[in-house]
Structure formats: structure tokens, C-alpha cells
Amino acid sequence: MTPSDFQFLADLVKQRSGIVLSEEKGYLVDSRLNPVARQNGLADLDELVAKLRVASIGPLADAVLEAMTTNESFFFRDKTPFDNFEKHILPTFAENRATKKLRIWCAAASSGQEPYSLAMLLKEKEGTADAWQADIIGTDISKDILEKAKAGLYSQFEVQRGLPIQLLVKYFKQDGEVWAIDPAIRAKVIYKYFNLLDSFAALGKFDVVFCRNVLIYFDQETKKEIFEKIAKVMPPDGFLLLGASETTIGLTERFKPVKGHRGLYALDGGETTKSVTAPNQMKAAAS
């Protein structure tokens, strides 16, 4: 591919999704877009780019975008965010709020493991004093991956990464090598197409925002804008959870890290600073 063709593709992808394709990602462009070219009856990437230069909006451009998203996810990924949710966020809300109702947003839901993990976590609390009524909304820019999320079907490999065996037995039905999530869990999550570059105005408010392992693909400017937009869809006592290699530090003053809780952020001036058990510290003390 010529440097100018690469630049054209990188600009297209960045403009539509925020995803930055640096020169070193050339191999990724090759391996992911060659199949797109073939599926569309095009000989190679040169032809693909030529066609996109004529029509940069339409099914072909959409297919290119789909192909350039990285959708890897797994159940209870990194564990800490889910500990933070269960052992810090819920107790904090329980103490400071009148009702046990929540609206949770998984802003890059991918194939559904993150919202379904939350749905299972909350389901486990049903019928106890810790029960919460929650709306879980999962959004993503990839329509293909949202279809997979909605279907709730996972391979044997996927259900073995991060999902405790007790939860597998309890919330999945097996059909050969395919594991289908319980319809009751599936019904707890609403999936929608949403591009993080778009206006958040119609989304409503979210008490908790999981925006994990998506900002890593964006440049600083885009990250800043998204943090600003997220801040506006949260109540003052809301929480934001980021991926293991993501941070708000140096990018926005709107959020501040919650001490002792890796990956957890509160609106500046929002969260009531008090010590609820820090799961990380507990772990450190126990080992």
C-alpha cells in the first residue's frame, strides 16, 4: 500500500471512529482489510482504497470501520473494576442515596461480557438486603459485535476466561461447544449502537459508566472530549471506570481517581471521601 493510501484509510477511520492507525499498525490494516476487499469482490487494498476515494460513505466504508475495531473482551475482565463496583460503588450509593436504583452504561460493550458480568453480579444479590434495581445499557460502534452481544452465545474458550465455574453452571446453557447465557440475564441488558464521537445529549444520565479499553485507541484530544461528555451525563456522585492502562490524569480536571481503587474515578467534588474497604489493599494484606 502506498503511504498516501495508508494516510487516506487512517484519516477515514479516525474521522469516523476516533481510532488512530499509526504507521506501525500497517500490518493490522493489511490483515484486517484484505478480507474486506475480497468479500467485496475487489482484487486488493489498492482497489479498495480507490473505491473508497470515490465513495467514502456507505457499506464499504462501514465494513472497513467494522474491521478496524478491536473487540476483544472477557467476563469479569481484570476483576478489580467489578470489585470496585461491588465493594465501593454500591456501598457508597447505599449509604448516600434514598433509592436503590441505578443506571449503568457500558460505553464500549463489545461482545457483551462486561454488561453481562454486571448483570450476573447484580442477579446474585437479588433477594438480599444488597439488591439493586439496575438498567444496564451496552453500546458500541460495531454493529456486528452488538449482534453477538445480543445473541449471548459464547464459545468454550470465551466462557473460560474470567468467568467463575459456579456462574457458568448457574447462568449458561450448553449446546455442544456453544454456551448460551440465561435469557433472564440477557434481558437485563439493553444494547444500542452508539458512537462515542457523537453527541451524548439523548443518552440521559448514568450513575456508573464503564468506559474500558476503548480510549486506548484514541488520541489525547479525543479522550479529553469524551471525558468532558461523560462528565455531563453523570450525577455529581457518579463513578467512572476505566481500563487497566487508561487514566484521566493529565487529560481532564473533571474526574479524580478514587484513592485505593485502581481504575475508579469520581467527578471532582462529587464523591464523598470516606473509607470503604479497598479490595486491592485487602488482597495485598491477605497474601
Binding site: 472477557f74 476483576k79 468454550q156 473460560q160 476466561r161 467463575p164
Partner: peptide
């Protein structure tokens, strides 16, 4: 663990 397994699965399950 359901075979076949790999490093990721062993690590995930052992950390579980």
C-alpha cells in the same frame, strides 16, 4: 477447565 486449554485459560482459572 474444559480441554483444550491454553496459557490464558490456566492463568485465568488459577487467578479465579
Amino acid at each position: 477447565i474444559m480441554k483444550p486449554f491454553d496459557r490464558d485459560i490456566i492463568e485465568a482459572k488459577f487467578s479465579e
